[in-house]
Each structure stands twice: as structure tokens, then as C-alpha cells.
Design a protein around this nucleic acid. Structure first.
Length: 572
RNA sequence: UACCCCGUGGUGUAAUCGGUAGCACAGCAGGUUUUGGUCCUGUUGGUUCCUGGUUCGAGUCCAGGCGGGGUAACCA
């Protein structure tokens, strides 16, 4: 899809083609779409695609897009989700033209139901759920008519009114459309329109004890709102004939339903049921755990909404059931963050670097650009001293020739500081390096040698005496398998990555002490990090790794040691 | 043993009224670089699922296969 990268080229796909045709033929004057979530859970990355499709299509064609709660089932829904959904849609950067609730149409829906009853197109069925299921037939066998199917319109009307009046218990009766029990499409085998639920509705209150089913509510809701193109996912394809049937039977305006494939991404799950299992099973900390594909999780991970939307636009819309490489998602996250995140220095796996010829107790303030991609981001000053923290894997005692970092006798540049040459190392009894000694060249302040000599490597550092300590949570894929949904025996929990989060106590440059929840940074040479808006406290920030920087050194190492061996360039 | 939908390089996706395959990511190679990041340049990958047919010409139309997905909640 080129449209995401080239705004001059309008997006092209089967839905937009259809809309253009409808606009040209005059069938449609102004495009109206909608995003119709059921408030029974939190939105996830799959919804982000649906939201992006609905809103951006409306935008592109100068139309409108509504947000509508598909709240027809009081047993599953909750006001908390209504609020969360609104917040998440706004977070993504979209603003709906109108906010609607299917529950507000209950009155109209009921009036229409009486119409169908009067026309002989709907009847009250006394059978219970099991009997109805049993008589529906199977995929290959036709269903059987209900004994109540030929009830007179007058009796049906009386019964329906009694249902509404609360004369019956839950499940005792149901209103069904009278269509065709032998239809090849099971949805057309006299679908249930109303069920009895003596239950409080989070919006309608106690006004109703009969609640409409999805099929009996959705198309008419679209119709009422004047939706021109009712976009939804593929699993609703078999519902379109029913959607059309109800609108036609009622003689009301009929929107055009168009289905597209839902979003699948490697290493991610987007089934509400499975996500719930992860939360309830304590596999993750909650719906907003940074490892979750929920919008709230991605947000806490530090994913910028702009990147999420760019990804969704790039992915496009089609009917083919596809799975995207997670690398494409990462690309969009890095792409936005590279341009917008300020740079900072942080050491995740620290080892002491001692500059033996540095004047005792001396501090020098060096200048660092906040973002080389954005000069307007300005500069900041960093304290430099004779004792620094550097990354443990930026040093090797016996480095290969293509290792550009520190090693005995080797010279590197300390970012924005001086050139230093390693002279010796201290080790503990077990042979672990406890400190690295070096000398610096005073003539190389700022990072350039007047004699023109070059160094191959530049490493980051934090002055030991000024370092701020903070928890940094390093995340990896929640599932080891790229396709957790098709786990053996359906047990996707076995595929949970035991190393999906690792907390390290890192040494950060002083300015990070005042990082505010919600801020994003690039820790130079490591990755992009988000200052958690939930667990951070004043003076005690907590950071989440959003995504690592591309690391061609590590990649080359991984290739050199296919399995087993620890890659020399492994970073936090 | 039904019905519906789908099938283009590794992954996605594009190709006006049928005119001979583009883009992004990934990969590879090189250049730039005080982030082994970014950026720039070049480049490897496709008999457009198969077989027939229509046509001067088919990824696009037709037929038949093959493969994948979906559907049997008083859920949405």
C-alpha cells in the first residue's frame, strides 16, 4: 500500500472503489460510517484497524463517522467499558461526529417489531433455547418449523405485548422472524429477534425486560443513523442477507454492509475470550499490561497513537485473511519515535569505567543534542566525570576484529565527551569484570581528535556520581510462537513467553529523574522507552521499553551463532 | 458432507473500460554518520494456486479443479 507513505496517491481498495462508484452514480451524497463496538470489553489493536478504516474513509470522502455503542445485551455490558472505549478512540486521535447508543433505539425497534408481527413476518415462539437449537437443523440438514410458527398475527401481537409487559420469565418466550427454516444460510432460519431478560440495562435502566438480538438491532440502527456504508469484519458476511431482509421487510432505508478481513499480527492474540484468560489467569498484570495488544496496553508500552494509525493505514483493507509480520508494526513505531522522541543516555547493564588520568573530583559539562532528527528539540548539558557507568557488553576482553567498542588497548569515543583508551580491567575472584580502567585524551573534547584520527566506535555513558537509578522494564513478545491462536490443542497459555518482561535497575542521566509519565525517549543505542504514567512517582520514574533500536551488530552475531551461544552484542 | 468468502515475490498490498506485475516492510550489498540508529544508493526474490476456455492480448472475464477461511449462541 503506497497511500500511507505518499499522501498524494489516494488509497485504493475494494471498499473505497465501491464508495467512489456510489458517489459517482449519485446513490450516495455524503458518506456516513460508524464504529459500533459492544461495551463488553476493552478495545484492542484489531479494533484500531476497524476504527482507522471507518474514520479515515469518512475523512477522505468528506463524510461523517459516528461512534455507536452496540449495547443490546445487558448481561455482558458495562458503563465502565463505554467510558474506556470513548477514551481509547480519542487517544487514537479520532473524533466522532455523533455519539449514539443502540439502547436509545429500543422504542423504535419495538414499534417495528409489532409491524412485522402484524404483517405476519414474525411470531412468538414458546420453545426453549434447547428446542430452538435442536430444530434449527445443521449445516447440511434443514431445520424444522416451530409448532408456534403459524400463530395468528393477533395472537402474536398480544403475546409480544405480554412479553414486553413482563408477563413471562426469562427464556420462556422469544420473538422470531418468519423466514425459512430450510434456508442454506442458518441465520435465515427464523432468527430470534427478542429474548426476555429481566435485567437492568446500563443505559436503558429498568425500562425493558425484552432485549433485541444483534441482527434485529444492527441494521436498523445503521438505517436510523443514515449510515451509507456499514463496514464490518468478515464473520458478518452471513448476516448481510438478514440485515437486508429486515430493512426490506420494514421498508426502511437500507445501508450497504461491506465486510473486510480483521487484523492479525504475529505473536499477538485478539480474541476477547483469550485476552480475558490472560488477565484472569494472572499471566499479565491487567488489561493495560504493556504486553497486551489492547489499546490501553499498547499505550502503556509507549506506542504512539500516530504510529498505530499509520500502521493500520499501511495494512490496508481487503477480504483476504492475512497475518502481518510484527516487524511491520515495529517499523511504524520506530519511524514515528525516531522523529519525535528526545534522546537520552541510559545504561541498562552497568559496569564501571574509571578514567585514571582524569583530574580528581573534576566535573565537566558537555552538550548533547536532544534529537538529531529535530534541531528544534534543542540541546542539554550532561555532567562528565572520572568515573562513569557504561554498558557491560560495550566491552570485550578478547574482541573480534569487527567489534568496534572497548577492549584492552582499544580507543573509543564516549558520546559527546572524549576519546578513551582501555588500559586494564579489575576482576573479582570469580573472574567477572568489576571495573574497566582507561585514560582519556584531553585534546578530544567534544568527540573529535585534532590530529584527525578516527575511532570506529562511540558508546554511551552516565557519570556515576550523578546517575539516577530507576526500574526499566524490558518487554518482549508475550508469545514465543508467531501464531499463538493455533496452539496445539488450543492451549495458547503454553506458548506464553517466560521472558516477556524483565526488570532491570538502570543508571540514567540526571535529567531523567524528572521524566513525566507519558513522555517518550530514545535511550541512545538501546531503544525507545516510555515513562509509565501508572507506576512512576515524582523523582522515581519507571520506564517501559516500547521497542528496541535496530541492531545490525546483534543481528550479525546471532547469525554467526545460530543457536546456543550468547551473542556478544546482546543488549538490554 | 451444505452454503458463503478468499487465493499476486518471505510478509502484506496495488495494477483506470482486459494491454503484459508496482509499492511498503523484511533480506542482501555499498555510502554517509559523534547512536553498529537515522538517512542515501543499488539489489535478490513472483511461471499472479492449477488446468482448460474466450480474446490480437487475461492477475483481471468464463468453466472445472486444488488450497485456505467462515457459518449451526435466547453473544456481538
Amino acid at each position: 500500500m503506497t497511500q500511507a507513505n505518499d499522501p498524494a496517491t489516494p488509497a485504493s481498495d475494494f471498499i473505497r472503489d465501491r464508495i467512489r462508484a456510489d458517489l459517482q452514480s449519485g446513490k450516495v451524497k455524503q458518506v456516513v460510517t460508524r464504529f459500533p463496538p459492544e461495551p463488553n470489553g476493552y478495545l484492542h489493536i484489531g479494533h484500531a484497524k476497524a476504527i482507522t478504516v471507518g474514520f479515515s474513509i469518512a475523512q477522505e470522502f468528506g463524510g461523517r463517522c459516528n461512534l455507536r455503542m452496540d449495547d443490546t445485551n445487558p448481561a455482558a455490558e458495562d458503563q465502565e467499558y463505554v467510558d474506556a472505549i470513548k477514551e481509547d478512540v480519542r487517544w487514537l486521535g479520532f473524533q466522532w461526529d455523533a455519539m449514539y447508543y443502540a439502547a436509545d433505539y429500543f422504542g423504535q425497534l419495538y414499534a417495528w417489531a409489532e409491524q412485522l408481527v402484524e404483517k405476519g413476518l414474525a411470531y412468538v415462539d414458546d420453545q426453549d433455547a434447547d428446542a430452538i437449537a435442536a430444530s434449527r437443523g445443521t449445516l447440511t440438514a434443514p431445520g424444522a418449523n416451530s409448532p408456534c410458527r403459524d400463530r395468528s398475527p393477533a395472537d402474536n401481537l398480544r403475546l409480544l405485548r405480554e412479553m414486553k409487559a413482563g408477563r413471562f420469565r426469562d427464556g420462556e418466550k422469544v420473538l422470531r422472524a418468519k423466514i425459512d427454516m430450510a434456508h442454506a444460510n442458518l441465520n435465515m432460519r427464523d432468527p430470534v429477534m427478542y429474548r426476555i431478560r429481566h435485567m437492568h440495562h446500563q443505559r436503558a435502566g429498568a425500562a425493558w425486560c425484552i432485549y433485541p438480538m444483534y441482527d434485529w438491532a444492527h441494521g436498523q440502527s445503521d438505517s436510523i443513523e443514515g449510515i451509507t456504508h456499514s463496514l464490518c469484519t468478515l464473520e458478518f458476511e452471513h448476516h448481510r442477507p438478514l440485515y437486508d431482509w429486515f430493512c426490506d421487510a420494514l421498508g426502511i432505508y437500507k445501508p450497504q454492509q461491506i465486510e473486510f478481513a480483521r487484523l492479525n499480527i504475529e505473536h499477538m492474540l485478539t480474541s476477547k475470550r483469550k485476552l480475558l484468560q490472560l488477565v484472569e489467569g494472572g499471566v499479565v498484570q491487567g488489561w493495560d499490561d504493556p504486553r497486551m495488544p489492547t489499546l490501553r496496553g499498547l499505550r502503556r508500552r509507549g506506542v504512539p497513537p500516530e504510529a498505530l494509525v499509520a500502521f493500520c493505514k499501511h495494512v490496508g483493507v481487503a477480504k483476504f485473511n492475512s497475518t502481518h509480520e510484527i516487524g511491520l508494526f515495529d517499523f511504524h513505531v520506530r519511524d514515528w519515535l525516531n522523529k519525535h522522541a528526545q534522546r537520552r543516555m541510559a545504561v541498562l547493564d552497568p559496569v564501571k569505567l574509571v578514567i585514571d588520568n582524569w583530574p580528581a573530583g573534576h566535573v565537566e559539562w558537555v552538550e548533547a543534542a536532544n534529537n538529531p532528527e529535530d534541531p528544534a528539540a534543542g540541546v542539554r548539558k550532561l555532567p562528565f566525570r572520572g568515573e562513569l557507568w557504561i554498558e557491560r557488553d560495550d566491552f570485550m576482553e578478547n574482541p573480534p576484529k569487527d567489534f568496534f567498542r572497548l577492549g584492552p588497548g582499544r580507543e573509543v569515543r564516549l558520546r559527546c565527551g572524549w576519546f578513551v583508551t582501555c588500559t586494564s580491567v579489575d576482576k573479582d575472584a570469580a573472574g567477572n569484570v568489576t571495573a574497566i580502567h582507561c585514560t582519556y585524551d584531553p585534546a578530544t573534547k567534544g568527540g573529535n581528535a585534532p590530529d584527525g584520527r578516527k575511532v570506529k566506535g562511540t558508546i554511551h555513558w552516565v557519570a556515576a556520581a550523578d546517575a539516577v537509578e530507576a526500574d526499566v522494564r524490558v518487554y518482549e513478545h508475550l508469545f514465543t510462537s508467531p501464531d499463538p491462536a493455533s496452539a496445539d490443542g488450543g492451549d495458547f497459555l503454553k506458548l506464553v513467553n517466560p521472558n516477556s518482561v524483565r526488570t532491570v535497575r538502570a543508571k540514567l542521566e540526571p535529567s531523567l529523574r524528572d521524566a513525566q509519565g507519558g513522555e517518550r525517549f530514545q535511550f541512545e543505542r538501546i531503544g525507545y522507552f516510555y515513562c509509565d504514567h501508572k507506576d512512576s512517582r515524582p523523582g522515581a520514574p519507571v520506564f517501559h521499553r516500547t521497542v528496541g533500536l535496530k541492531d545490525s551488530w546483534q543481528k550479525a552475531q546471532a547469525k554467526a551463532t545460530p543457536k546456543g551461544g550468547a551473542p556478544a552484542g546482546k543488549k538490554g
